Simulated assay, not measured.
Amino acid sequence: MAVERPKLALNPPTICVLYLFLFLAPIDARKPHHISFRSPDLYPEAAVWDPSAQHFIVGSLRSRSIHSVSDAGVVDTLISDPSLPPNSTILGLAVTVDGEASIFSRSAAFTSFPVDRDAPYSYCGINGIAYVSRGFLLVVQSNTGKMYKVDVDDGTAKTVLLNRDLPLADGIAVRGDGVILVVSMNMLWFVKSDDNWLEGVVFDGTPLDAERFATSVAVGGGDRAYVLYGYVMEGIKGTRPEGREWFEIEEVRSEKESKEEKVWVYVLLGFGLAYFLFWRFQMKQLVQKINKKQN
């Protein structure tokens, strides 16, 4: 008498293969997160992610206020101070948990590279700043494209040796895996280091929409990189007399990292399929042996 073959829908290898196809394959299909938010004449220059409240916080070029922006684009005013001078702007923002004082540095390293005074934005010097573990800061300089490592105790600074400059670097943020994100109006760079930031490698760069003028980068939920499109230059020059109502915060990915993720997905899918086929072969051999004994 022939032995009935096991039902594939109930066995662990089949479940494993289905899991790989249903849950790993969609990783590649997810679209970048896009947030459009409405706040007339806001022109935000800086954005940070508040992990406790799970929303972004933005300042304003033209209003004396700070606002939160949810994933759905809902804007709420957190602080508004009419007592400030009418021309006040809120550019830099930070979210801290301990309230410690800022560290300032006047290192000669910041003036050790020549600046082309005829180049656009040559007047912009030290700009983005981020705290990195182990007691130091990383800062970027817009008019030289350099990155510096600053000691939080004594303020001494050293140039981080990179494989390329970061022209017009503006905002900077640190991802959970240690990768540094640096944004300019037209590019988001991905930088990493294996020697505690004595040297670094710019391993990828994602082009941005220069017209929307990105000025800030933040690491949001899920360790995802977001850039703020605040149309700041439009706000500074006043080229839109009627003002602007809508602004954007967009997730930006590294193409190189996305390709690597795809490779791992395909490897896992291939492994699952190979395991399933091997199991099928083994089961077939087992059934044939049992049938021979029965006959």
Rank of each mutant, 00 (worst) to 15 (best):
L18W: 05
A210I: 07
F110M: 09
G125P: 03
F37D: 07
M1W: 05
E261R: 15
G205K: 11
I35E: 01
V263D: 12
G135N: 10
Y275Q: 14
K289V: 07
G92A: 13
V179S: 01
P85I: 01
K7G: 12
L61A: 04
S102M: 13
P12I: 08
V69C: 05
L268Q: 12
I79F: 12
D177Y: 07
D177H: 12
Q288E: 15
I90C: 02
E199L: 03
G176T: 07
D223C: 05
S258P: 00
F104A: 13
Q54H: 13
H67W: 08
G205C: 03
G59C: 05
N163D: 15
K149P: 04
I57T: 10
N143V: 06
I103N: 10
A119C: 09
D81A: 12
Y148K: 11
L138E: 00
L166K: 02
L84T: 05
K146W: 06
L273S: 06
A47D: 00
I172F: 02
P114W: 04
S60D: 00
R64A: 12
S193F: 00
W246F: 11
R175M: 14
T14P: 01
A169D: 04
V74S: 11
R64M: 07
T156R: 12
A2Q: 09
L181F: 03
A157F: 01
V287L: 15
Y226A: 03
T111F: 09
S112C: 06
